[in-house]
Design a protein around this nucleic acid. Structure first.
Lengths: 292, 292
DNA sequence: AGAGGTTACGGGCAGCGTAAGGATC
DNA sequence: GATCCTTACGCTGCCCGTAACCTCT
């Protein structure tokens, strides 16, 4: 009996198939067959029922699953409590929304890389909705997104809010939202939907809302006088300092953006847990520098 | 990290040296070095302090030991609860006192072999004192001896008592213990010592006591009229039926022999635990057949 | 035909034992 | 020198991936 066998069994049971488990574990499907087959041969009992569509647990399999989970838990504990972080190796997949990427993500990556120098990082920047799906499908290990993710399997760590301010091109005079388009976050994002609703109610049906998946592109458009829009002050500070944009008050302020560091609680991952902690610290520190 | 590494670490920590662990695990000493070395390299921390005389645990090592014990415990649970007994392989070392060997040990070996057909058995017959030492030194896994073994690490399962009856050669007339020697269990055994004390008190200083390490040889001597002695009825029944010996009453009866199935509680062994249970069942069944 | 798992087979590498090499008393 | 553990090195066997195969819908 080996950890690999138990881990493989765990994932086959959890994902309901050899193929899915092999994808998740980065193995060929026959390798998963071999591991399960060997484990069953050693135990002398069948632990999985092979049906035409996927697999189900046998009675002994259900029993074993509990022990396997316990094993993997203890193993994680060892890595977490006993091992030297600088020796941990592997691949860690981070997903981030662009706002975070533009804010403190570089600081986070620096800190994380310092604590886990042997871990490779795979970074994806996408909108929160996609990150949420990726997280639940276990395509990423840790996500910085507009959360929380309310699945009960997901751990959410609250991160500092981003307050939104309205910006327009410097010296562009009074803004009439009936004529000047509003540019905002990508469609299908929560801030975008909220902004749409709020503008329809306050300004009326003539309002035009652009959406852009790129924050920096959006701000460039604002600087060019093409549109106006609400953005986190921290991200606008560059263009603000250059005198290309300025703040204005259209009479209301969208609700602040709330982010979380989110990861699956099960199976446990030291890197995800610690990554969430680091993110909280780094984000808080970054947030304090923005209060000036 | 592998089970082998953790198990090796456990035994090195428990026995206080690489060489001792290698002996216990049936490995070369360098193999133990490699396992520990690899484990330390993977964790990135030293877990053992090598001193000139043996080894001691580092801080992390002490922490790891707890987790390792937990792992090995869960692994034993899996083998015990999930695995099919008929698939369990290995070597199982049994030590038995001769009384048991002459009584129900064959029945036990048959039952054990049926439940664990792949397990090789190594049988030693010796006096209880030696079995006790062998057990504590882990040279045997399960002992049937005059117990209990009162070390706190040892589990003892009470087995049916053997009541002693006095036997003499058939038709040899009245027995005078002042002239007829008494033959009994081997010197350095509890029944021998008790018998000596009792005879000195009741019969006087003239009594002669022979001792024999072989029960069947002793009974042959009784049948030959050379001596008399107290023996379990069950073991005497053969010669009794042949009419070579007969029971008599010298006025007192030695206390019954009490046996236990004893094994080390730590580390856990499915085979020893289950072996003890089987022994209890088999011995009880055997005992009932003797009541006739 | 396609989705699922199994069987067959060649190759790479982890881990073993033997043998030699420190270190410390 | 005796007692430990480590290092060096050749070898074996395990386990992986590729490829072909089987079964059921």
């Amino acid at each position: 009996m080996t950890f690999d066998q138990l881990k493989t069994f765990y994932w086959v049971a959890r994902l309901g198939g050899f193929r899915k488990a092999s994808d998740h574990l980065g193995l060929s499907q026959p390798a998963v067959s071999t591991r399960i087959g060997t484990l069953e041969a050693e135990l002398g009992v069948a632990i999985l029922e092979r049906t035409t569509k996927g697999v189900t647990l046998t009675k002994q399999g259900a029993l074993l699953l509990g022990y396997a989970e316990q094993m993997l838990f203890v193993q994680e504990e060892i890595v977490k409590r006993v091992a030297n972080p600088s020796e941990i190796e592997g691949l860690f997949r981070i997903g981030s929304s662009e706002t975070i990427a533009q804010a403190w993500l570089p600081d986070f990556l620096k800190a994380f890389g310092k604590e886990y120098p042997r871990v490779s990082i795979d970074l994806t920047v996408d909108i929160s909705g996609n990150l949420r799906n990726s997280l639940l499908q276990q395509d990423i290990d840790l996500a910085f997104l507009m959360g929380p993710v309310s699945e009960f399997t997901v751990e959410n760590i609250a991160l500092p809010k981003f307050h939104l301010h309205w910006y327009k091109a410097k010296g562009s005079g009074t803004v009439d939202l009936n004529t000047k388009p509003v540019i905002s976050y990508a469609a299908k994002t929560r801030p975008h939907r909220e902004l749409m609703a709020e503008l329809s109610r306050r300004v009326g049906p003539n309002v035009r809302v652009y959406s852009s998946a790129s924050l920096s592109a959006s701000l460039q458009m604002i600087a060019a006088g093409i549109a106006v829009g609400p953005y986190p002050q921290a991200l606008a500070s560059g263009l603000l300092a250059l005198g290309q944009i300025e703040e204005f008050d259209p009479g209301f302020q969208p609700t602040a953006l709330e982010f979380t560091a989110s990861y699956l609680g099960e199976p446990r991952s030291v890197l995800a847990e610690r990554g969430g902690e680091i993110a909280k610290e780094i984000a808080a520190a970054w947030d304090r520098t923005q209060d000036l």
